[in-house]
Design a protein around this nucleic acid. Structure first.
Lengths: 119, 119
DNA sequence: TAAACATATGAACGGTTATTCATATGTTTA
DNA sequence: TAAACATATGAATAACCGTTCATATGTTTA
């Protein structure tokens, strides 16, 4: 059997099959990047805590700061990141700005994550 | 109406309700940390690309390196992180080590992420 | 309009992380 | 057993990120 495709580790598998399959299934560079960016947002315990508060209610910034024992500035910076990722949305009411979950993917993704680590 | 609970932004909501709800729903510090750690692993496009290859087949390290145009060392470092997070598992066969997806949470989590960004 | 309040933001600092390079470990084969 | 091959790993470097501090923006009220 002639070795084909990849020039490494003397396997007799037809590597070209793999290359083709991978190229077919692989995301575009941009979507790959966006996907990583999205998960980065979940990759910080402060932001996850914020999301857990928003699981319960629509909450204004200063209440978030109080409940989580964080400074208003730190919360605001993190909310900006969550908002850019479209995980939360904001609504102004007078002086306050109320934040809430943007959609249910947040719940699903976090639920799946919990399932994984609780094995 | 007497203001209760949190001492900020003159809302008349009963903040104690929120505090109680949050404390009830909030994860333990350790689980919160583990969850963030898990998502951090997804938060890198190199690791996502590795996972996408493993969606197609069980693959050895040097083939991963070839397919993804990365050095063997870089791939190996990332595989260690994926393995620590129990997202992939390894099987030695002679000189080669073959990696595969550890379970289906990987697929689900990435699928949910894709759904979110494709809105 | 001025003061007070709630939120947003830019800059800076310290800590984290992905890659590279050199090298070590583990396995097969001559 | 020595050489060749496949993989793993420690150290170093550069880039990135979360918090803090100071301050700006936006809104209400006196």
């Amino acid at each position: 059997m002639e070795k084909q495709g990849l020039d490494c580790c003397d396997q007799f598998y037809v590597h070209e099959d793999l290359v083709e399959k991978v190229n077919r299934g692989m995301l575009e560079e941009e979507e790959l990047y966006d996907l990583a960016e999205l998960f980065k947002v979940f990759g910080d315990s402060t932001r996850i805590r914020i999301l857990f508060v928003l699981f319960e209610a629509e909450v204004c910034v200063c209440d978030l700061a109080e409940v989580l024992h964080m400074t208003q500035s730190a919360v605001s910076h993190q909310l900006r990141i969550l908002k850019q990722a479209k995980l939360v949305s904001a609504r102004r009411e007078g002086k306050s700005v109320f934040y809430s979950l943007a959609d249910d993917h947040v719940r699903t993704i976090i639920a799946q994550g919990r399932e994984h680590i609780e094995e």
